[in-house]
C-alpha cells in the first residue's frame, strides 16, 4: 500500500451559521507520490479543500490528515500556491526568494527556487508589481518549490495563463515531481489542462465527493456506449444517458457482460468529468479506499 498524502473523513466546512456548506461529508484518500487533480465546477469546494489542507482554515466538521498528521503540524513540509498568487508587490524577485529562505529555515533550497525563476527568464531585480500574470505564477511556484515540500497544493495554478506559459509551468512542476518525488495536488475547472499530467482524480460537486481514485482505474470503470434508443441499459449503472432520435449515447459503469450490438469506448478524462457534472444525481464512485487499495 502506498503512503497517504491527504485523507479526509466526514470533512465539512461551513462559512457563517446559515450558508450552504462549502464542503459536506467529504471522505477520500489521495496517495503520496503522484499528481492528483481536484476537479469540479466553480464553487464546488476545491479552494476550500486546499486551504484546509494547507492549514489556513479549520474544518467545521470531520477530520483531515495531511502526511499523516494535522495540517498545522506539517506546515513546513507542505507548499501551497493560492489562486490569486499573492506576493508582496514592493519586493523584487530576489527579495521574494530571500523572504522564502528566511521563513523556511532548514528547508529552503536556493538552487531549486533560482532555477524555477531563471527558467522563466525573469530579472531577479525586477519588482513583483511589474510582472505579468505568468511571471507572478512562476515566482509563486518558485517560492513553493524552494521550500522543498513533500506535498504541493496548487489552487487553479494555470488559470489566466497563455498556453505557452501553461505548458512551461506544468513542465517545471512535473520535473520537480520527477526529481524530488513531490506529491502534487492541483485544482482546476479546466479539465483539458490536466489531461496527461495527472494520475489521480478527485471530482467534487456542490461540496461533495463525486469520483475519487486512480485516473486509469476510474476511466477503466466506465464505458461510453452508443446503441439503439430502445436498448435496455440494465444491469449497468448509468451515469448519464442521452437519446437523439433512434440513437442512445450513455456513460455507464458496466456490471457484467454488455450487449455486443453496442459500440463502446473507454471515455476520456474530459468525457468522464463532463458526464458527471451534467448528472449531479449519478452515484458516487470511490476507488481510493484503503481497503481496496490494499487488495
Amino acid at each position: 500500500m502506498t503512503e497517504t498524502a491527504i485523507e479526509a473523513a466526514g470533512l465539512g466546512m461551513r462559512f457563517g451559521r446559515r450558508g450552504k456548506p462549502a464542503l459536506d461529508g467529504c471522505a477520500f484518500r489521495i496517495p503520496a507520490g503522484g499528481v492528483c487533480a481536484v476537479v469540479g465546477p466553480n464553487g464546488a469546494g476545491k479552494s476550500t479543500l486546499l486551504s484546509l489542507a494547507a492549514g489556513l482554515t479549520r474544518p467545521t466538521a470531520g477530520a483531515l490528515t495531511v502526511l499523516g498528521r494535522s495540517p498545522a503540524e506539517v506546515r513546513a513540509r507542505v507548499g501551497y500556491v493560492a489562486q490569486d498568487k499573492p506576493l508582496y508587490p514592493q519586493l523584487t524577485v530576489a527579495e521574494t526568494l530571500r523572504w522564502g529562505r528566511e521563513l523556511n529555515p532548514g528547508r529552503w533550497d536556493d538552487k531549486v527556487a533560482e532555477r524555477t525563476v531563471a527558467e522563466g527568464d525573469l530579472d531577479p531585480e525586477g519588482k513583483i508589481r511589474t510582472l505579468s500574470g505568468g511571471q507572478r505564477t512562476r515566482v509563486a511556484l518558485a517560492l513553493a518549490l524552494g521550500k522543498r515540500p513533500e506535498l504541493l497544493l496548487l489552487d487553479e495554478p494555470m488559470a489566466d495563463l497563455d498556453p505557452l506559459a501553461r505548458h512551461q509551468l506544468t513542465g517545471t512542476l512535473m520535473a520537480d515531481a520527477a526529481e524530488h518525488g513531490t506529491t502534487v495536488v492541483m485544482s482546476s475547472h479546466v479539465v483539458a489542462e490536466l489531461e496527461g499530467s495527472c494520475d489521480h482524480l478527485l471530482l467534487l460537486g456542490a461540496g461533495r465527493v463525486r469520483l475519487a481514485g486512480p485516473l486509469d482505474d476510474l476511466l477503466a470503470a466506465h464505458r461510453l456506449v452508443t446503441g439503439r434508443a430502445d436498448a435496455s441499459l440494465d444491469p449497468h449503472t448509468v451515469v448519464e444517458a442521452r437519446t437523439t432520435g433512434r440513437g442512445l449515447t450513455a456513460l455507464i459503469r458496466p456490471e457484467g457482460p454488455r450487449d455486443p450490438a453496442w459500440q463502446e469506448t473507454v471515455p476520456t478524462l474530459e468525457e468522464l468529468v463532463l458526464a458527471h457534472l451534467r448528472a449531479p444525481q449519478a452515484p458516487v464512485l470511490r476507488l481510493d479506499d484503503v481497503q481496496e487499495a490494499a487488495v
Binding site: 489556513l56 507542505v78 501551497y80 508582496y88 532548514g106 513553493a144 521550500k147
Partner: peptide, 14 residues
Amino acid sequence: ESGTARLAWTQSVS
C-alpha cells in the same frame, strides 16, 4: 486582504 498573510502562513511559520 491581498492574501500575503496566507502566503506567510504556508511557509514554515505558524
